[in-house]
Design a protein around this nucleic acid. Structure first.
Length: 266
DNA sequence: ATGGTAGGCCTCCTA
């Protein structure tokens, strides 16, 4: 079985690329983030024509997460228990469309779009840390309930866990994605039993999953590794390979993130 | 030279 995670940065702007990529990469399941769609505008029909079932969670033009599968799609859950809400000042906080779970081919797949944080000290940064802590608490509970569960926490974590995961750590001094609290929150997921299964197969220097559209960052390979597949122990032992589909970042109309693909036994 | 790109409900917000 082959599953993937990909921040598509608008699924409607990239439907043709998504369909072509599915046919080329032959993934069985892909978790999408930043669909920037509502359930009504998600291109479920076009994906169905390729043989994929879909679940989508989107409530506005922002955020939005989906799971696309040709190996079953059961027990869909929108959001996780304790997922924090966020709202601009003087508005009612809302739980955003940033988490979607479904069981596909015997694996509990989570499509996660961790809040960006915007700037250190911004309310959105505190929201990011609270969101990650709530995720850790819930995800630790899933494993406590069933230590043999095959669970994958996949998506855009908006954290570069080590200095090697950014093209120039000095350029990020004082910015989000590299701060100690964010990195501690990421490590806490590992401590809870969820292992980054992609890095062992993609550990060459300057290996990234995201490149900003500006300043020829992709052409200069000035990127960040911020998209991950964190797997429970029982799932991690089944992993036989992983890769970052850097080619999908090339050319006109690419997302600013590359898909991350994991191969498992069975 | 303090910019630049790309998405969205598009002259502002989000990333």
């Amino acid at each position: 079985m082959r599953f993937a995670t990909w921040n598509v940065n608008s699924v409607r702007a990239r439907t043709d690329r998504l369909l072509a990529w599915l046919q080329r990469s032959e993934v069985d399941v892909v978790a999408l983030q930043e669909t920037k769609s509502t359930d009504a505008t998600f291109p479920a029909t076009a994906l169905s024509a390729l043989g994929y079932e879909t679940a989508h969670h989107g409530v506005s033009q922002w955020n939005g997460v989906a799971i696309v599968s040709r190996v079953g799609l059961d027990d869909v859950q929108r959001g996780f228990a304790g997922q924090p809400a966020f709202g601009a000042p003087d508005t009612t906080p809302a739980v955003e469309a940033r988490a979607l779970g479904a069981t596909c081919g015997g694996v509990r797949i989570w499509s996660l779009y961790v809040p960006h944080g915007r700037a250190v000290g911004d309310p959105h940064y505190d929201y990011k840390l609270a969101w990650l802590e709530a995720l850790r608490t819930d995800a630790a509970g899933w494993l406590a309930a069933d230590p043999q569960a095959r669970i994958a926490l996949t998506g855009d974590f908006n954290i570069a866990p080590t200095d090697a995961d950014v093209y120039d750590v000095a350029a990020f001094e004082g910015h989000t994605h590299i701060t100690a609290p964010e990195r501690a929150a990421f490590r806490a997921l590992d401590d809870a039993g969820y292992r980054d299964v992609v890095r062992p197969f993609t550990d060459a220097p300057r290996t990234y999953t995201y490149w900003d559209y500006q300043q020829l960052r992709f052409q200069k390979n000035r990127g960040m590794r911020i998209d991950f597949a964190l797997c429970s122990p029982a799932l991690a032992t089944a992993v036989t390979g992983a890769r970052i589909d850097r080619d999908e970042r090339k050319g006109k109309g690419a997302s600013d993130h590359a898909p991350v693909i994991v191969e498992i036994d069975s």
